[in-house]
Design a binder for these strands. Structure first.
Lengths: 213, 213
DNA sequence: GGACATAAAGTCCAATTTCGGATATAATAT
DNA sequence: ATATTATATCCGAAATTGGACTTTATGTCC
């Protein structure tokens, strides 16, 4: 039997969920047979039905709990928005996994306000809160970029070369760029081509070398 | 006596307010004698002490209430973030206005969550809520840009020429660009120089002309 | 551990886009 | 009537792009 046919029956479920949480949750149904996106509801990533599922379904088995769910775990999209993600496995009559239903909650706005409220009520100016989530270099990259932008008082869409060099410098010093895959990620986060990114990276490295000796 | 000297005494007030609402409120003290920014606390606009006060103090008198306050009124910064603004007039012993204390509250995050919560609880899908604030072309411009970005599923810092042309086309059709000052504003909102903006505007106009006949 | 496949890092370049600043013109205020 | 401010264009210089390419690192299978 055709697995895509089977998965059709889950589309109303996807739609129902996204209707209940409009514009907050993205619902992605992955076909584990073809390893492609079978259905997507309220997509705010750039994926579209038929796309390769990529990492999302890669090693789900290792994190799968007995109740058939995975997560919640954190993701972050290249534009810096943060996402809380939970997945459910779907099995056929024989118990064979045929699909993965992923719920992605956009938490950025909520977290921003959580932060605001926290700052409003806190008395101490403890700046120690830097320790969270530093395991994921993507988060670190986002944080570094955000900090830099705030300090330079520019918003991400009006950066010119000077600001970009500064940001790349910081990322370099923060040792983000030694992570595998960071180049491409940062380039996209800065809204810049890979070519430009590497060109600027070289500039930064050269100028650091010069100034050091 | 030197008015700037006098205003020094208000700086602790500014600081106190910004401490109470960290990163939420920008406090700007305008010297009405020199019409310049005398002090700024937690500034998230790009202004700096000594800058011309510009429109902010322009015709405050007309909106001044008997209690010495102005506003609240809405502003929006070129990067699209929304600001709620209230000002207080400061007079010397003789009752002559010498300064304007402006409080600018960044409402963007709060409004985003307000919107989220609203959508969560509402049953009807009334899309009529489009009527608010359409008096200010800046708001309209921001809304048009935001809509376009959402539809095209790109974030503002990774637009290329194609997306920019599309956005400018929409702004043109929405008749935003006939407003005085809109050119410069939109250029900055798009993170693009005036020159490029006008070049692209011409492109859009030409292509519209072509397709119409 | 070595050979292979694969993916990312980094380079190169011609074509395109954008910039910044100067300038001319039109619209608007006073 | 005049000063001011915005619109619009022009141009050479600088930055950016996309795509092809080479090099280097990573993981994998025997």
């Amino acid at each position: 039997m055709n697995s895509l046919q089977d998965l059709k029956s889950f589309e109303p479920v996807c739609k129902a969920i996204s209707l209940m949480f409009p514009e907050m949750v993205e619902v992605v149904l992955h076909d584990l047979k073809t390893n492609r996106v079978a259905h997507i509801e309220n997509g705010f990533s750039k994926r579209v039905v038929g796309d390769d599922s990529l990492i999302e379904t890669e090693n789900y088995a290792s994190e799968l709990r007995p109740d058939g769910t995975i997560g919640p775990y954190r993701k972050s999209s290249p534009d810096g928005s943060r996402i809380k993600s939970i997945s459910a496995i779907i099995r056929d009559d024989a118990g064979v996994p045929i699909a993965l239903l992923c719920l992605n909650l956009k938490t950025g706005d909520l977290e921003a306000v959580t932060g605001l409220l926290g700052k409003l009520t806190q008395l101490e100016d403890e700046s120690a809160g830097k320790s969270i989530l530093r395991n994921d270099w993507r988060e670190l990259a986002n944080a570094v970029i955000e900090d830099a932008l705030k300090e330079m008082k520019v918003s991400s869409n009006q950066t010119r070369k000077a600001e970009r060099l500064e940001i790349i410098g910081r990322l370099l010093r923060a040792d983000v760029l030694s992570a595998r895959g960071s180049g491409e990620y940062v380039a996209e986060a800065l809204g810049v081509s890979r070519a430009s990114f590497y060109a600027m990276l070289r500039e930064v490295r050269n100028s650091e070398k010069d100034s050091s000796k």
